[in-house]
Design a protein around this nucleic acid. Structure first.
Lengths: 228, 228
DNA sequence: TAATGCATTTCACTTATTGAAACGCTCTTT
DNA sequence: AAAGAGCGTTTCAATAAGTGAAATGCATTA
């Protein structure tokens, strides 16, 4: 045994990842992806199939019901959604604008996994499950790892005209777990205010997975003479 | 080797399921859930942890980022959501009412994984990710396996007053994969019409995973003098 | 027809998994 | 305070279980 990991399980999970990444894989492709011999890959895929994590049809192996179930559970359960709830609430309370949490989905896209609508009567609106491209959006650029040193991204009038999005990464260790963002109608926010908002969002984002740091953000930001 | 399954992997996936089911488990609880010795459970959970499928915090083991990722991928990728897209569209086109797809989530609940809003100005509304109880809702009863022989469930004024829900199971083999449903404001649909709608929904539901059967549903249902 | 690629089965090798036992720890009970 | 119970963790010898090369049959392709 190498150190403290179970090779068989690692390989099976690798295969599971390969199947989910490509949507539909042949046995041979999956085996190549995971650098396994065909016989080993077959055996492991069969186990994954028997447990419902993948399913097999004419086009090869596909993600199965169980992974959808567990993913949906993890999505709705505590995990990031509940962990980020307080931060989202604070952002809405502090700015009156809509706040979102996104995670990477299939290649080139992310999805909304948590939503808090703003309190302004004119506000940005989206929904859980919505897909966004990784390019041209603030949240997308954060998920793509393009956040600059300052820790946040501001995109004015990107794929959605008239709106300004401010996003910051939620890190889990050294990986980007999600993007926390606030989206504002552009007419309501100056570039300077967007920078300040960026710092606020970045602060909240870094606090989400830090149970140690007590969230002591003043968290009040006045945009265009309106406060919350 | 028993037949054609890898015990180690099966056990690891069992643990993964246990963790996702409960949201947060101690090592001992997880081991009990999966009928494993503590040392084995520990080793497997560490492998799951190293691969990002679970994470460990002060409260025990929780679903990790990777399961959220893969679940989101499977959700957006082909899988049920896209497979059911055409059926949902047909239901909305044929009835003007909102149509939904639900899967089981954590114990006693299901969640919406696909949504098509109806075209009537007065219509039922929900969103992807929303949780529903398994009791008192048509979709829930379907997911709980309570669909009668006729193949669909009608619930009038259940947990949500004033609405009538009609749901049918989407089967994958002999298991219930999801619930397909149409939800209508009660004042707009008679009991007789609800039964007809039930047959329509049941027909669409059975067709979702049947690539063989060409979807040849007339699919036009007139409710209360309005047609789509 | 031959050649290539895939899915599948078999099987001897031995590697990697296993679970009981023991340890330190923190609570709770006596 | 001492004893007891439960948890997370580590160790280790036994052996159960996973491994991959090779062989097979079946499609496609040249």
């Amino acid at each position: 045994m190498a150190d403290t990991s179970t090779r068989t399980v690692e390989r099976a999970l690798l295969l599971l990842g390969a199947v989910c990444d490509r949507g539909a894989v042949s046995l041979a492709d999956a085996a190549r992806d995971a650098s396994l011999s065909a016989s080993t890959a077959l055996r492991l895929l069969r186990t994954l199939e028997a447990t419902g994590f993948v399913r097999k049809d004419d086009d090869g192996y596909r993600p199965g019901m169980r992974i959808v179930q567990l993913g949906a559970q993890a999505l709705s359960h505590e995990s990031l959604v509940s962990l980020s709830g307080a931060a989202l609430d604070r952002l809405v309370a502090g700015t009156g604008e809509s706040a979102y949490l996104n995670v990477p989905a299939d290649d080139g896209h992310g999805i909304y996994i948590a939503v808090r609508e703003g309190t302004h009567s004119v506000r940005h609106t989206s929904w859980v499950g919505r897909r966004i491209p990784l390019t041209g959006t603030a949240a997308g650029r954060v998920l793509a790892g393009e956040a600059p040193a300052c820790g946040y991204v501001v995109v004015r009038n990107g794929v959605e005209p008239d709106v300004t999005a401010v996003a910051a990464p939620v890190m889990i260790g050294d990986r980007i777990a999600a993007s926390l963002s606030v989206v504002v109608p552009s007419y309501r926010i100056s570039e300077h205010q967007a920078e300040i908002l960026g710092q606020l969002v970045a602060g909240e984002a870094s606090g989400i997975l830090n149970t140690s740091t007590t969230p002591t953000h003043p968290g009040h930001l006045t945009i265009d003479g309106e406060s919350a």
